[in-house]
Computed example of a mutant assay.
Amino acid sequence: MPTPRLEKITPANLDAACELRIRPDQEHLVEPVARSLAEAYVWPGVAWPRLVYDGDDLVGFLMGFFRIPWSEDTPTDLRSGLWRLNIAADRQGRGYGRFAVRAVAEEARRRGERSIFTTWEPGQDGPEGFYLRLGFRPTGERSGGQTVGELPLVV
């Protein structure tokens, strides 16, 4: 099992963060880190971007979200969860994604949340199996064409 850690995005690691690349066959499934950082900029206090390191090696990027209005129709439905997950192409399958999801879950639990949400592109080449193995269950909702999954947190 890797010994990863989270780091905030800083001027010193910004370029490396933006250069992080997933596998080419996954590029249609998740936005690049630069797009995520732009979204974090316009959602201050909601977005929680972090880099995943193993030793000195940058291996991934995650962005959590906390207490965001889930839809315009229900502005009081505030949810938290995993907004984005990018694990470097050559580092996938080593537990870094699992670590990232657990890190968001721990932060959500620390903030008093009882569950976290995420979305994924449906289809055979998508990450559904990964999220289901971690305990996410589809809610029956769709968000931007993506499947919405919820993971209850043990309190």
Rank of each mutant, 00 (worst) to 15 (best):
E121G: 08
L134I: 07
P138Y: 04
V59G: 03
A47P: 01
A47I: 06
W120Q: 11
R114H: 10
G45K: 03
T147Y: 11
Q92C: 11
L29W: 10
Q92S: 06
L51C: 05
R109L: 04
E121N: 13
W120H: 11
T118M: 06
F65L: 15
Y41H: 15
L132C: 11
R102T: 09
E128N: 08
S143L: 11
A105V: 00
A105Q: 00
L85T: 08
V101W: 01
P75C: 11
N86A: 15
I87K: 04
R111S: 04
M63I: 07
A88Y: 08
G64D: 09
A40E: 08
I68S: 07
S115C: 11
Y96C: 01
T139W: 06
V42A: 10
R109Q: 01
Y53K: 07
Y53S: 05
T119C: 03
P122W: 05
Q92V: 04
A38C: 11
T76I: 07
P44N: 05
D125F: 11
Q146T: 13
A47D: 04
A100W: 01
D56K: 10
L151S: 03
G60E: 00
I68A: 08
D125S: 13
E150D: 10
D90G: 14
A34D: 13
P122A: 10
E72F: 13
T147M: 13
G55S: 10
S143F: 09
G144R: 08
